[in-house]
């Protein structure tokens, strides 16, 4: 039993392993509820920290008062991970490249980090900006259907 207990403890304490179900990530992203606009960020009553994981600086126009910079590649290095774990309140990810912030968000969510958001500076990133104009004369050849 002791051996069994030791093995389970080793398993639970391994920080490199993911422990969450992907369902939690899918549900948390529903209706973009994991995104925060700069205006919403300023209205947050609880403490927060913006983590810039992108390659460029946070634009001054966003008026982000407290932020730290951690490169995406080093996000889970021992020192940087400790910083992330020690954040008091919400952890807000920022990157000018929405793909970087999205990947980081999923990884942190699946590692069990709570109150993680993406700072969204450009409206709905999944909005289709173009409207398809159908060609009403187009028809497929019958045998290809």
């Amino acid at each position: 039993m002791v051996v069994l207990l030791i093995l389970v403890v080793i398993r639970i304490s391994d920080q490199g392993l993911f422990k969450k179900d992907v369902k939690t990530a899918i549900e948390a992203t529903r209706n973009n509820s994991n995104l925060l606009s700069p205006a919403e960020l300023r209205q947050l009553k609880e403490p927060w920290m913006v983590v810039n994981i992108g390659t460029s600086d946070i634009p001054d126009s966003l008026q982000v008062e407290h932020s730290i910079k951690i490169s995406f590649e080093n996000l889970l290095d021992q020192t940087d991970r400790k910083i992330l774990e020690g954040v008091n309140g919400s952890l807000i990810l920022y990157s000018a490249n929405v793909a970087t912030a999205s990947k980081a968000w999923i990884i942190l969510n699946q590692l069990g980090f709570k109150n993680v958001f993406i700072l969204n500076t450009g409206g709905n990133p999944e909005e289709l900006k173009y409207k398809f104009q159908p060609d009403t004369t187009a028809r497929l050849e019958q045998d290809s259907i």
């Binding site: 051996v3 069994l4 093995l7 389970v8 080793i10 398993r11 920080q15 490199g16 392993l17 993911f18 422990k19 969450k20 179900d21 992907v22 369902k23 995406f72 590649e73 996000l75 889970l76 990884i107 699946q110 590692l111």
Partner: peptide, 23 residues
């Protein structure tokens, strides 16, 4: 115990890669 230690929490719905590898 050995089986439990090496099985993911939910094999089908939990990440199999280690965090550093996925990053």
């Amino acid at each position: 115990g050995v089986i439990l230690a090496f099985l993911p929490f939910d094999a089908a719905q939990t990440f199999r890669l280690k965090s550093g590898e996925l990053l």
